[in-house]
Each structure stands twice: as structure tokens, then as C-alpha cells.
């Protein structure tokens, strides 16, 4: 039976909501509105004048084959980063969960990379894979493979995915480990007594019980791959070669802040706004249904 309590009056509720509403309006609706407004113009970078172009910016963007391509690039990049970082994190968490001695040290060490800023992580990976002086590319060279992410699109994508996932593994690991430790041992032991081997227990007990955490991480990681990997891409490839690593967010930056084309940059932000909105709806409508709380 559901009991609903209804308070009298509306002043107090409004008053209590006000701080949150103000913050939302000031920091979310206002900038978003501003972006939509600016996407209708080609403004001069100094703000001296501005030409109304209506949907011109959008037509300009959508007729650009490279811009349309960057949707695909973003999808490949985000999905790769999400699955790579979550997959490795889950694997490590399962191992850590089974440890009896030294689990604390093991997990503390795994959390370290999370403390490294994305741009610095980018530089680290860049040095390791530098086509001329990199340690890793040198070893790859010994195996007879000529590593050159400066020209090879696949290698460039692989490198930014790797660098972006690396720091993220720690974060995911932390949540997975907590999730695993929250699963009652008795359930697993009961299954073991019934003769279920590790894989079966993992598939039928651990995965379903871990699904709320997995879903949370999925959302958070996709948002991360979309918006926060910019520093890594900037330091390693600057979006190249031939825009093979130019994600939607990186293009907003490079057109707006390097190229001074604020109209196109604003229009891209608006498109991004819709993409992310759509993504959120999909996640909560379709994926969340499969989650057992």
C-alpha cells in the first residue's frame, strides 16, 4: 500500500527547491541557451560584430564529410574506452577479491594511476610510443613492426584509447571491488556446494548482482569518454592523423579555441547536447531495465 503525504502550501517547497533551481538555471540552462543562440550566428572572435546565418552553421557542419565522420570516431572511441577500461577493471577486481593476503596493498597500488591528470597521462604515453625515441615503439620495432601513430590512423586511435582507459581502470576497479565484496559469501558458497564451478557462479550470481554497479560505471565511463578525454587526445595526436582521433568534443575545442570559429563551435555544442541527451535516454530506458537492484 502506498501512502502519500501531501503538505499544505507551496511556498516552503519552492523555497527549499530554490537553491537547486538557481544553480541549475545559472550554470546549465543559461550557458546552454547561450550556445543555442550563438549557433545561429557567425560571430567575430572579439565580439565586435556578428552575422545572423540561421541554420547556416548546421548546414556547414553537416555537409562536411569530416564532421559526419567524427560521429563514428566518437562512437568507436567511447565504446572502446568504456569496454577496455571496464573489462580490465573487472578482471583485476575479481582477482583482488580472491586475494587473502596483501589485498590492501594490491588495491592501493592499482588506484594510483587515477591520480594522474589526463594531460600528463597523455604525455607519458606519448613518450613511450614516440615513433623515434619511445621505449615501447622501440621494442615493437625489434619485433619487426614499424610503429608510426603519426601517420597510421588505426595506431593513433589505439594509442589514445589505451591512454584514456589507463587512468580509468583504477576508478572502475574501485567500484567493482566494492561491488564484489558486497555480494554475500553465503550465496556463492551455497552455489559452490551445489556443484557450480567458478564460471557458472560468475555468470549466474556475480554478474546479475553486480549489474547496478556495472550500469552506473557504464554511464559514468561513457560520459568520461565523451567529455574528459580531451586532454589525452590533445597531447597525443591533436586529433590527427587526418582527423582519425578527432572526437566531437575535441572538434568543438579546436574549431572554437584554436580556429576562432565560434559560430561553428557553438553549433557543434548544440549537436553534442542532443547526442548526449539521446544517449542518456537510451541508457536509462533500455539498459536500466536489465539491471537488478
Amino acid at each position: 500500500m502506498r501512502r502519500t503525504v501531501i503538505f499544505k502550501g507551496w511556498k516552503l517547497p519552492i523555497l527549499l527547491l530554490l537553491p537547486q533551481l538557481t544553480i541549475t538555471a545559472l550554470f546549465f540552462f543559461y550557458p546552454a541557451g547561450q550556445a543555442i543562440w550563438e549557433s545561429l550566428f557567425i560571430p567575430d572572435p572579439f565580439g565586435l560584430k556578428s552575422q545572423f546565418v540561421g541554420t547556416g552553421n548546421f548546414e556547414f557542419l553537416l555537409s562536411d564529410r569530416y564532421y559526419r565522420n567524427s560521429f563514428r570516431t566518437t562512437a568507436v572511441f567511447s565504446i572502446s574506452v568504456t569496454f577496455l577500461s571496464m573489462g580490465i577493471a573487472l578482471y583485476l577486481a575479481v582477482l583482488a577479491d580472491r586475494l587473502i593476503k596483501g589485498a590492501g596493498i594490491y588495491s592501493s597500488l592499482l588506484i594510483w594511476p587515477y591520480a594522474v591528470a589526463p594531460a600528463i597521462a597523455g604525455v607519458l604515453w606519448l613518450f613511450m610510443f614516440n615513433t623515434r625515441v619511445g621505449v615501447v615503439s622501440w621494442y615493437i620495432g625489434l619485433l619487426g613492426y614499424d610503429w608510426n601513430h603519426v601517420l597510421n590512423q588505426g595506431e593513433a586511435m589505439g594509442l589514445v584509447v589505451l591512454a584514456s582507459s589507463w587512468g580509468r581502470i583504477s576508478y572502475n576497479f574501485l567500484f567493482f571491488l566494492a561491488g564484489l565484496q558486497a555480494i554475500p559469501k553465503s550465496v556463492i558458497e551455497a552455489a559452490a556446494i551445489d556443484g557450480a564451478k567458478f564460471w557458472r557462479r560468475f555468470r549466474t550470481i556475480v554478474i546479475p548482482l553486480l549489474s547496478p554497479i556495472t550500469f552506473f560505471l557504464l554511464v559514468v565511463n561513457i560520459v568520461y569518454a565523451f567529455f574528459e578525454t580531451f586532454g589525452v587526445i590533445h597531447t597525443i595526436t591533436s586529433g590527427g592523423p587526418q582527423q582519425a582521433t578527432t572526437t566531437l568534443v575535441y572538434k568543438v575545442f579546436s574549431d572554437g579555441f584554436v580556429g576562432q570559429d565560434l559560430g561553428s563551435s557553438a553549433a557543434q555544442s548544440v549537436i553534442l547536447l542532443f547526442v548526449v541527451g539521446l544517449l542518456t535516454v537510451i541508457q536509462f530506458k533500455f539498459i536500466e531495465r536489465k539491471v537488478h537492484y
Binding site: 601517420l151 590527427g240 574549431d255 580556429g259 576562432q260
Partner: peptide, 17 residues
């Protein structure tokens, strides 16, 4: 927009290299 044009040239030259 010469900075961006240079970016475009870089991309296309990379395709040649």
C-alpha cells in the same frame, strides 16, 4: 581562418605521406 586551413593542409598532406 588560416590556422584551420593549415590544419586541413596538414591532414591532407598526411594522406599523401
Amino acid at each position: 581562418f588560416f590556422d584551420q586551413i593549415r590544419g586541413i593542409i596538414d591532414e591532407e598532406l598526411e594522406a599523401v605521406w
